[in-house]
């Protein structure tokens, strides 16, 4: 009996193998494979620019904040919720920090504290409304987004650059990546570098991955997203879990907001416009399902990279007209969604 089982296991067909794989791992694999295919495609068709390590690290530099925001969003999406306030909150954080640093002569650590507190406050209120009053997350965070955007204008209407010295120094800090670099036009070796934000983003990715994978709380997020009613019956405090998801997302938005601020170095009401959509798109491309219960932080990381790689490809391909970016991102999103949908339905049938 057992021997026949073994041989049949060895001869597992593709469909069976697909079926044995958990939804999360399956979507993660698809994401990573597609990202590498895309990056290789970019190198082959668009030339050496993409081959330089710095090209890759620039993607990281520009998207450190988005990675952090997407992590928070993935978490909320895994529990079956959504948070569309992250972009607005980011703008509010940038503006508050900028005003504090430049108009009130503040120092950087307090600015970071302000950023974290704003993020946590949003997470706290939204989490309470969603989890304990059972209001639809879409509506709550929509209001959160409106509120944050409106508040940004109320704090300060005009965009301005921050000139606080300590802040500018932190902003310009470059951390060289050992062993990687390229020779520039003058024949000088330039080591590849990343900004402070990238380090923070990578730390966030690692911590969040560990939390979701190796802690009880992390698995509870998945359980709640998989089936709320069942999770309750399994003895999980569903309300608290949902609340925590929003709270952590708020905290990450605080971190991400400051990293964003560090990258742009200015305050403006129009900052981070559409960041929530980019974050949602990244999470989805990374294999998080909006229905909840399925997703992976590593996938989200690759989701952000895929999204920005596509943007880079579009601009390098000479399609500079502004509308092409929007259209290609949309097409990419469409492609991923359709692939996910087809794979999942194929799996169901298999």
């Amino acid at each position: 009996m057992s021997s026949t089982n073994k041989t049949s296991a060895e001869k597992m067909s593709f469909a069976e193998r697909l079926k044995g794989m958990s939804d999360t791992n399956l979507l993660l694999t698809i994401t990573i494979v597609i990202f590498f295919l895309m990056y290789i495609g970019a190198i082959v068709f668009l030339g050496g620019g993409f081959l330089k390590p710095q090209a890759f690290f620039n993607i990281l530099n520009a998207n450190a904040a988005l990675i952090i925001l997407s992590c928070g969003l993935s978490l909320v999406m895994i529990t079956g919720g959504i948070d569309i306030s992250v972009g607005g909150t980011t703008a509010l954080i940038s503006m508050c920090c900028a005003v504090y640093l430049d108009f009130h002569g503040g120092n950087v650590p307090v600015a970071i504290l302000i950023a974290l507190l704003i993020g946590l406050a949003f997470g706290l209120v939204q989490g309470f409304l969603v989890a304990y009053l059972d209001i639809q997350p879409f509506i709550v965070t929509l209001a959160g987004m409106f509120f944050a955007r409106g508040m940004t204008t109320i704090v300060n209407t005009n965009p301005f650059n921050v000139e606080n010295e300590a802040f500018v120094a932190l902003k310009d800090t470059r951390i060289t990546v050992p062993g990687l670099g390229s020779v520039n036009k003058l024949g000088k070796y330039v080591p590849a570098y990343v900004g402070v934000g990238v380090i923070v983003a990578l730390l966030v990715v690692i911590v969040m991955f560990c939390v979701l994978r190796w802690t009880k709380l992390g698995r509870q997020f998945y359980a709640v997203g998989g089936n709320k009613q069942s999770a309750l019956m399994l003895g999980i405090n569903v309300k608290r879990t949902k609340f925590l998801a929003h709270l952590i997302c708020g905290l990450l938005t605080g971190i991400g907001g400051f990293v964003y601020f560090l990258y742009v170095g200015s305050g403006s009401p129009s900052h981070a416009s559409g960041a929530e959509m980019n974050a949602i798109a990244s999470s989805i491309i990374g294999g998080t399902m909006l229905t909840g219960g399925v997703g992976n932080i590593v996938g989200t990381f690759f989701g952000v990279l895929s999204l920005s790689t596509i943007q880079n490809i579009v601009s390098s391909a000479g399609l500079d007209e502004a509308w092409w970016t929007g259209i290609t991102i949309a097409a990419m999103l469409c492609l991923f969604l359709v692939i996910q949908s087809l794979v999942m339905s194929f799996k169901k049938k298999a």
Binding site: F147, R149, G150
Partner: peptide
């Protein structure tokens, strides 16, 4: 202000 409008709307909502 029209840009600040959303903040008030959000509270009402």
């Amino acid at each position: 202000q029209s840009d600040a409008l959303p903040a008030y709307k959000a509270v009402v909502v």
